[in-house]
């Protein structure tokens, strides 16, 4: 996935030993414990069970860890800039403009009292000194590029008036209008009908490759990650179990090299060609988190 834009060979994102701790009255909860990875102009999948820290990783990159969470890292660099050294204001300026995120359910992640168009235009106007008219024009173009047929009509609709699939396109338009380099997609299709999931992924994929962006695709769907991503990080309990090329997830011949947790996840997948009476239970080894 190397493109001409990436001349310096510098990774978009370089993270070493990322930790997210929540200081609760009953003790410290470690959501992410020592995650390291680099992201180039590629599609990186992060998979894991619920509570494995995948979403918190995305939030930590955006500086959107809710109170009382604390983020720590040995290194967190965005294109050579040290994210850890930036203040809140500088981090905010990066959001939307350079690093953005598509969230799970458009039913809840769009503001119910604003038209979808004005929400897209807002994302543009925050980062570009643009008038209302220019922002509208850009938003309409953006709606078109997420394959909405009547942008001018959809622009004036409220979130409750659009379907889930259309809502997620609006979300993508809103999050990509300022042309960020990195997009974090946090389970972007989990709340959608199976029939529209692939459409949305196609749109996402086209835009990401067209613009040479880096994509972090957070999911618990192994099939999806395997077919959609270049590289996959498998997380468990806030730690990386292993990192592997996505193609190898399906490759039976490399199974010997796989981490037992990854194998456990793969074994839990029902297979249409070889139906089994009983799916095995995942056996988690406490030693993995040591």
């Amino acid at each position: 996935m190397q493109t001409s834009a990436d001349k310096t060979n510098q990774p978009l994102l370089d993270i070493a030993n990322l930790k997210v701790d929540f200081h609760t009255p009953t003790g410290i909860v470690q959501a992410v414990r020592g995650l390291s990875f680099t992201l180039g102009r590629e599609r990186l999948g992060i998979v894991g069970e619920s509570g494995s820290g995948k979403s918190m990783t995305g939030r930590a990159i955006l500086d959107l860890i809710p109170h009382p969470g604390v983020v720590g890292a040995d290194r967190m660099m965005f294109r050579g800039q040290d994210l850890m050294a930036m203040d809140k204001r500088e981090r905010r300026k990066l959001r939307g403009r350079h690093i953005s995120m598509v969230m799970q359910d458009p039913k809840f992640s769009l503001n119910p009292v604003q038209t979808v168009g004005s929400q897209i235009a807002e994302a543009y106007r925050i980062h570009r000194k643009a008038g209302a008219r220019e922002a509208r024009e850009r938003s309409l173009t953006m709606l078109e590029s997420v394959q909405i047929r009547e942008p001018a009509r959809v622009y004036d609709l409220y979130p409750h008036e659009v379907s889930g699939g259309m809502g997620q396109r609006v979300m993508i338009a809103m999050m990509l209008i300022a042309e960020p380099e990195i997009l974090i997609a946090d389970e972007p299709t989990s709340a959608l009908d199976v029939t529209v999931q692939l459409q949305i992924l196609k749109i996402l994929d086209d835009l990401v490759s067209e613009r040479g962006m880096g994509l972090i695709f957070i999911s618990h769907d192994l099939h999806l990650v395997q077919s959609f991503c270049d590289r996959v990080i498998v997380m468990y309990g806030g730690k990386v179990m292993e990192t592997l090329p996505a193609a190898e997830l399906a490759d039976e011949t490399t199974r010997g090299r796989r981490h037992p947790y990854t194998l456990g996840l793969l074994n839990c997948l029902p297979d249409l060609d070889h139906p089994r009476e009983k799916l095995p239970t995942l056996n988690r080894d406490p030693a993995w988190l040591a």
């Binding site: 905010r92 959001r95 939307g96 953005s100 995120m101 969230m103 503001n111 925050i126 979300m171 809103m174």
Partner: peptide
């Protein structure tokens, strides 16, 4: 606590 508030922050909307 709503998701749309997080989405607004992701866009870079000021607090």
């Amino acid at each position: 606590q709503q998701q749309y508030v997080i989405a607004a922050r992701v866009k870079g909307v000021s607090e």
